[in-house]
């Protein structure tokens, strides 16, 4: 009896989580000219309008470039640091881990204010570099956590074998460690990209006037009223942010399977 109650409760929780998202998907195909019920027919017109909206396309380009650069820098920093923490016995490793995790322990608003005021003081105003610095710093902890978790599973003796067979440390890193590490690197990069792509809290503080990312563009559009275009944009975002990680996971599994064969 109790178990059935838990089962029904869980079902309701899933409905609660997914109903609003389902409604966004549904309404984005609504033929009606208002972004709301009732559904008057099935149509792709809002996606067509989306593709013709210059402001939204610009926001997409900004978000993608920002996300890619964030992923590149954040993953590089995160992988190097994780290697040090997992592979070496570093004095004060706990302290260092805490420092690297700190950006998620500080409320993002406070981080945003600090970075904005400090870099402005150094002569870097609201700009793309400021945005990039901000995105790197708050994605870094996630990369470190994800990469560390995967790194622990890679055996050290393969590298030692390469070294004892005469490979240099640099050769060993590029020919042994990095290929073994690739799934962790990709997972970290994907995580960083998605978090950057999704961010609005810090971005609203750092973005210069006139520059919009996709979330800030949606936020600006919400000021008017909810148009069907926003629902269509939401659908595109959902497909991108849910589809990409699933694709990434599939690729990672394939790569792992390929190596196993």
């Amino acid at each position: 009896m109790g178990w059935n109650l838990v089962r029904v409760w869980t079902l309701l929780v899933y409905v609660f989580m997914f109903a609003p998202v389902a409604v966004v998907l549904l309404l984005s195909f609504n033929a009606s000219q208002f972004g709301s019920f009732p559904m008057t027919g099935f149509s792709f017109r809002w996606f067509v309008e989306l593709a013709e909206n210059e402001a939204i396309l610009r926001a997409f380009r900004t978000s993608i470039v920002l996300g890619l650069l964030t992923a590149l820098i954040s993953t590089t920093l995160g992988v190097l640091a994780s290697l040090a923490l997992v592979r070496y016995r570093v004095p004060g490793a706990n302290m260092i881990s805490t420092i690297l995790i700190a950006p998620i322990l500080v409320p993002e608003v406070v981080l945003a204010v600090g970075l904005l005021l400090f870099l402005n003081f150094l002569g870097i105003p609201k700009s793309f570099p400021l945005l990039l610095a901000g995105h790197v710093i708050f994605t870094l902890p996630f990369v470190v956590l994800v990469v560390q978790a995967r790194l622990v599973g890679i055996r050290r003796d393969v590298e030692e074998a390469a070294l004892s067979l005469g490979a240099s440390p640099v050769q060993t890193f590029f020919e042994i460690t990095l290929p073994l590490l690739m799934p962790a690197v990709l997972a970290g990069g994907l995580f960083a990209f998605t978090i950057s792509f999704d961010d609005i809290t810090g971005t609203l503080f750092w973005k210069p006037g006139g520059v919009e990312t996709v979330p800030t563009q949606i936020f600006a559009m919400l000021r008017n009223s909810i148009s069907p275009e926003i629902n269509a944009l939401g659908t595109v975002m959902i497909v991108m942010t849910v589809g990409l990680p699933l694709l990434g996971a599939a690729i990672a599994r394939r790569m792992a399977a390929g190596r196993g064969a």
Binding site: L80, A81, A84, I96, I99, L100, V110, L111, I137
Partner: peptide, 20 residues
């Protein structure tokens, strides 16, 4: 290996907090 990440966090989080 640690220097880039740790200095990034120090420079972009801890110093800014002290600054504000």
């Amino acid at each position: 290996l640690l220097t880039p990440a740790v200095s990034a966090v120090l420079l972009l989080l801890f110093v800014p907090l002290a600054f504000i």
